[in-house]
Amino acid sequence: MKQNSHIFLVLTLLFFLIPLLVLVAQSFSAPWRFQTGAGLDWELRSYEQLLQNPMLWKATFTSICIGFVVLLLNVLIGVFTGKALTTVPFKGKPWVEALLLSPILIPVLAIAMGLHIFMIRAGLADTALGVIIIHLVPTVPYSIKVFHNSYQQIGRAMLEQPHILGSGFFRQLFTVELPLLKPALRSVTFLTIVISLSQYAITAVIGGGRVLTLPLVFFPFLENADASVMSAFSLWFAVIPVWMYILVEAAILLLPYSRLPWRNKR
């Protein structure tokens, strides 16, 4: 057991923690030339260069706005569908579940290409709204799955209880279901934002290069920015989900029966 945890520590350091530290170290120093025997030159130049770029701020803002709306729609669709899958009895449920997962089993690029002409006709091509809609495709199936699992854990009996006591649909949703779905809300926040930030190809296809999100700035950066700036940019990508997570955590505190973490339970 002891030995096991040593192996775990070595593997985790090597494959997960050290790469992250390398990224951080590189972002705060000039590009490395260890082979010449040079050491680290600590500097903030990469961040200055990155943050002075007006495109970065614009793209960050666009990405956050798109990510936020995508998240809201994911929660809406995920909660309703998760509840329906748990409480409505019908035949062939496994197939419906598989069908709802299918959008992430079909290439999203094929779907985006197929929807492109429709988006042009509907006036959604080259707009943020169009990008939001296409970002739903790779995210919603995960959200449905997460919320479905969570509802199943709560159980049908617990979901009937507020109804018997006299609660209406929305009251039940806000007073009982959403507070019990907190862990699911957190996972969905992370999943949705990271996936939305990961989409270069479908954003380019539907946004036509005019909806400038962070990935669309990242790829051209690769051509001419040095390792320090690229490392800083890479870390910038991780800051956004963390930031959004804090925002959602604050929103969760507004739910009924939430207890402020610093307040004693009793």
Binding site: F80, A84, L100, P103, I111, A112, G114
Partner: peptide
Amino acid sequence: KHSLLFLPAVLFMLLPLYGLLTAV
């Protein structure tokens, strides 16, 4: 009312289905 719970999912599923069909 139960079917209404499925409405958002049905609307969503139109996206990939329509996209794939058009691609085909």
